[in-house]
Amino acid sequence: MAKCDMKMPEDFLLKISKLGSNFDSVADTVLQAGGEVVLKKVKSNLSSVIGRGTKFKSRTTGELEGALGLSPSKLNRDGNHDIKVGFAEPRSDGGSNAKLANILEYGKHGQPAKPFLKPAKTASRQECIDAMTKALDEEVEKL
Rank of each mutant, 00 (worst) to 15 (best):
R91K: 11
K43R: 14
K55I: 14
S17H: 02
G94V: 08
K57V: 15
H81W: 14
H109Y: 14
A101W: 03
R59W: 08
R77M: 10
P112G: 13
V26Q: 10
N80Q: 12
A88D: 15
A88P: 08
H81C: 07
K74N: 08
G66R: 00
G86F: 08
D24K: 08
G51N: 06
L39H: 01
R77W: 14
S73Q: 11
N80M: 12
T54A: 09
S21G: 14
A98H: 06
V26G: 04
D24F: 06
G20K: 03
S73N: 01
K40V: 08
E36Q: 15
R91H: 03
G107E: 02
S25N: 11
R77C: 06
N80E: 14
K41A: 10
F23M: 13
S44A: 12
Q32A: 15
A101F: 04
T29E: 10
S17P: 10
R59H: 09
K55G: 13
R59V: 13
L19N: 06
N102P: 05
A27Q: 04
K41P: 03
L68C: 04
K84W: 07
K40P: 06
V49Y: 00
N97I: 02
F23W: 12
A33P: 13
L75K: 13
F56L: 14
V49G: 00
S17T: 09
T60A: 14
E63R: 02
F87I: 00
K55S: 15
A27Y: 00
P112E: 11
S47R: 07
E36F: 05
N45I: 02
L31H: 07
S25Y: 00
R59I: 13
